[in-house]
Structures are given as structure tokens and as C-alpha cells.
Design a protein around this nucleic acid. Structure first.
Lengths: 298, 298
DNA sequence: ATAAGCTGTAACATAAATTTAAAAAAATTT
DNA sequence: AAATTTTTTTAAATTTATGTTACAGCTTAT
């Protein structure tokens, strides 16, 4: 009992004719005849009465037809399921992001375009996102300044500048920009080591041959913002993380202009998946529209 | 989406391993890899996480697996259905017979041997049986003296002699046999034209250069028997149609010894069917046991 | 009777499935 | 940590299945 035999039998049974069955299956009549006949021969059954130009089901044929009908309905459902998955009418995507600010607009756009695909988002830091993607705990990552890797595809999303956040009553609050060196004397409020913000700042400080002294180290953007607001010192954030807060003022830091490269990353092997591919393409689209982001060679 | 792709996928999903799936399907591992991979590629899905020595279903894979499981269960049922039909554990056979006497022992034996096969029996005369078989209204026929035909297979079942039935008070009732010529002077009670009994008798009378005169013509065996019993004349029957009836006596007719050849007939094309084949083989078996019947060349 | 349509047969062509052989990757053992 | 075994994958060759073309035999309709 081969699949092609059942398929031919089922088509003939439905159409009541070998030639129309062949048409239905986009085959020539002999192909159908051969399949049905071989089925009949291998089980010693007569499935059709051929007399009189038309193929009429025998009792054995009728019984078999009841079963094949069910079988091919199942098959059709699988076909449709696969097509729908392929067309992103369904599916699931695990997103890992190092923060909400960059990720959310992307996620919102994806949801709108592919409402059938469910998303799960896990927030972490740059390192955890990288690890999640490499270990396939996540499908696509949204993270900053990710290092290239043979196994990864990296796509630039946007560039951000780092800003210094000062209380409105601070003497620097009237300026719009500042040099890094000028900040070294201030009381600095930094994110924890391992965070992207801290990594970028430390790198720049080192490259400029500068150094800072006593530091207040805090574990979240919100903590930094509050600390600045109550006048504990000068904080560091990326520009998109700043919004209207009349207690604080942000200054562009000359050396840290466009110092942050937000990226979408995924495993090379995963780009074959329609959902992953769709996410990456959408990200490129949005990057192009917003900041004319370009692809980074891996 | 080809059947072999789904089959390979389903096996890997069930076994959690490509190599064990291959074993299960009696294939080599590459065959399985290729099928699964081509399925993944053609729909842009990743069905398994290959990392870690074992093949673990992804979310997409899990969803597909739910459906393929159902699908292959269906398929198995079809397989079993066909095998059972082939093994005559089920099925149906339409039998056409020209009378109950010869047919019933055969039918009883068939029922006993193949209790799963249902039978329908239609009774008629020699001509109707022949037509039923040729027109596929019946699958096998049990009938006497059937003429050969290119499309038919004929098998001898048993030979019967024609007997003359006389009332016990008749002068012939003391004899065991008689010559046909001796009966021509008697009041004859015959079956209708077209019946096998009449055909055989008329043929013999003609061959012997004899003739009968006035005739009482009746439409059934029972009518003939009753007519003889009440003394209306001499009737004709075949030996198996006679049973203990103390009102009548049967005499063998010399010229009509073994004049009736009971046969099982079927279309050549139908002998391929297990059920038809089984019936014919059973008939040969019983013929061999009873009267060492031999096959008639068509 | 002739034509049209359907089914079936035989030889051939194509495409799919599978195997063999061998390499790469992952896990296990030494 | 190196070596071995197991599993998965790749590429090429082969077998098998499926399908086509061409044509013959029947049946039905014109």
C-alpha cells in the first residue's frame, strides 16, 4: 500500500472516472490506472466496476474510500498548516533584548504585520542576549555593540549617542554638549560593570587617557535617573533612554557621539526560518527608514 | 510536502533521534536526514533542535507532530483494513445459484471457513445465473451445464443423473432403472422450458430420436413432485433433488446418467479477488472430496 | 458506421528515494 | 586532554517508483 496508490484510488472514487481523476491529480490517465490496478492486485481486491465507461466503487472500494477520504482530509490539513506557518500566519518567535527602548518599536511593528505569530520577549543585558541566541534559547536578539561571530548574523538598527544627565540646578545644565574630560571631576553615577552603558563609557575613558575616581554604581537606568534627580551627581545614559523629566537635563558628550550601535542578531542557521527572516527584514526596513542603518559584515 | 518527508519527520519526532528513526523505517540515516531537511527548507521552518546529541522538537515541530501522529494512525488503519480484507477476515461475496440443493453445502462450508465474509445469495435459473455473472451483478455462480465463454472460468462441482419420478402405486415403481424410450408413452410432467431439467431432457429425447406427446408443464420442482404424488404422471428431477417421500419412487434413466454437470462459475477478471478465489478453491476442494470433479477447459 | 471518449498495455523517460562511502560534529571513554 | 565511539551530515551513485508517450480495445453517442 503506497501513498500514490491510495491517492489515485481516492481521486478515482471521488470523480467516478479514471480520466477525470488523472486531470484532478494533474497526471495522465495511465498513471492513475497503473496505481489503482497495482493496489487492487497487491491485496486481491476489486475496487471499481469498470463496466460502461465509468468507474463505480465496489463494496470493498466503498469501504476503503470511507477511510481514504478521512486520510486525505488529514493530509490536506497538514498541508494547510505548513503553508500557514510558512506564510507567517502562525508561529512563534523568542526575542531576547538588552532593554526595552530599542526593542519595543520593532516588536510592535512585527506584531502589527504578523498578528498570527506569537512573541515572547526576555529582557537581559548585552551579554545574556548574546548567550541566549548562541544557545538557541532565543531566536532573535536585539542588543547593542554585539561582537561579530562566525555563527551569527548582525544587522545594524540605529546609532545612539551617550549623554550625561545632570540635575537642572547643576551648573552644566545650561549647556547642550560637553567634552568627556570635563566630566571627570564630577561625582559620577554609573551603571554596573557588564552593562553596555558602562562598557562603552569605560572604553572611551580609557581611549582618551582619562580616569574617574569615586563612583556611585547603580544597577538600573531608573536608579541612575533618580539618583541624578536628587542631586547625587552626573549620570550616563543613551539618548533614547532619556525622556522629558523636568528635574534633569541631558548633554551630548562629544567623544561618545554615535557610540552605541543597536543591532538585531540571530544565528545564521536560524535565518532559514521564515519568522526569523521576517523579523530581520523588518528590522532592516525600519533601520533604513529611521537612520539609514547599514548591514555590518560578519 | 511529500509523504516521505512527513514519514521521516514523524519517525524522528517519535524516536527523538535520526539514527533510531532510520532503524524504525528500515532506512539508512542519510535518507532520514535528507527528508527532514528538505521538509524544513521548503517551508522555512526549523522542526528540531539538533544540539545535544538528540533531536528535540521545536515549537513548530511539536505542532506538526500532533498532526502527523493523527495522520499516520489513519494510515495504519487503512493498512490494517486492506490486510484484513486480503486475508478474508472481512469482505462480501455475491453468489448467484440456479437452485438451493447444490449451493447450500458450499455456502455453509464457506461461511464456516471465512466467517468474516458476508454472503448474499440470489436464486434463479441457469440462464439468469449466467447473465448475473457476466454483468457482474454476482461474483460467483453455482449453476448446471453452463456453456463455456472466453470471459468465464468454469469448474465442475458434481455430476448428477436425471431420475424419473413415479407414484409408488405406479407399475414402474418396482424397478430401479429405465430406458428413456420406455417413458415416452407415459403421461409426462415436465419443468418449464428454459429450466435446466427441461433442457437436458429435451436434448436427450432429440438425440435418441424420440418424442413425447401431451405434457403437463409445471414451474417448479415442488409442483412436479406434488403432481407425481397425486398420480398425474411421471416427473423428471435430478437425483439430489429427490429425498425420502414415501408417496413417490425414483428410477435412474439409463441415457441420462450423469447428464447434469453442476458448476461453479465466475468471471476470469474476478478470480483475482481473494474472496472469489477462495470460493472457487473451496468448491474444487469439495468437488474433489465428493465426486472427484475435474476442471473443465474453458 | 464513424467518431469521440475512456480504460488499459507496453516501452521508455524522469524524478524521487535510498544507499554507499566518507567527513564533520558531538558525546563518551581512556 | 586525547582518543574513540556514536551520531549527524554531505556528495555521488544507484535503485526504485512514478510518470509519459504512443497505441490498442471497448463503449457510447452521433
Amino acid at each position: 500500500m503506497r501513498h500514490s496508490q491510495l491517492r489515485a484510488f481516492d481521486a478515482v472514487a471521488r470523480e467516478g472516472s479514471f480520466s477525470r481523476a488523472a486531470q484532478l491529480l494533474k497526471l495522465t490517465p495511465p498513471a492513475v490506472t497503473i496505481q489503482v490496478r497495482s493496489l487492487e492486485e497487491s491485496y486481491g481486491l476489486t475496487l471499481f466496476h469498470r463496466s460502461g465507461g465509468q468507474a463505480l466503487l465496489t463494496k470493498d472500494g466503498q469501504e476503503l474510500f470511507n477511510k481514504t477520504r478521512q486520510f486525505f482530509l488529514e493530509e490536506e490539513q497538514i498541508q494547510e498548516h505548513l503553508s500557514a506557518s510558512s506564510a507567517l500566519e502562525r508561529g512563534h518567535l523568542k526575542i531576547a533584548a538588552d532593554g526595552p527602548h530599542v526593542a519595543l518599536p520593532l516588536i510592535a511593528a512585527f506584531r502589527e504585520r504578523y498578528p498570527g505569530v506569537t512573541l515572547s520577549v526576555s529582557l537581559g543585558n548585552a551579554e545574556s542576549v548574546r548567550q541566549d541566541i548562541l544557545a538557541q534559547r532565543g531566536d532573535v536578539g536585539i542588543t547593542a555593540n554585539c561582537a561579530g561571530d562566525d555563527r551569527l548574523i548582525l544587522d545594524n538598527l540605529s546609532l545612539q549617542s551617550m549623554v550625561a544627565l545632570v540635575p537642572v540646578e547643576h551648573s552644566l545644565a545650561e549647556r547642550q554638549q560637553i567634552r568627556l574630560a570635563e566630566l571627570m571631576a564630577e561625582q559620577l553615577i554609573l551603571r554596573e560593570r557588564g552593562s553596555n552603558t558602562r562598557r562603552v563609557l569605560d572604553l572611551a575613558v580609557k581611549q582618551q587617557g582619562l580616569a574617574y575616581e569615586e563612583v556611585l554604581e547603580l544597577g538600573s537606568r531608573e536608579a541612575v535617573r533618580e539618583a541624578v534627580a536628587v542631586g547625587l551627581g552626573v549620570g550616563f545614559l543613551f539618548e533614547h533612554e532619556v525622556w522629558g523629566d523636568n528635574r534633569t537635563h541631558a548633554l551630548l558628550i562629544d567623544e561618545l557621539r554615535d557610540s552605541n550601535r543597536d543591532m538585531v542578531i540571530c544565528l545564521k542557521s536560524q535565518i532559514k526560518r521564515r519568522s526569523v527572516e521576517a523579523f530581520v527584514l523588518l528590522a532592516r526596513e525600519m533601520a533604513g527608514a529611521a537612520l539609514s542603518g547599514q548591514k555590518v559584515p560578519v
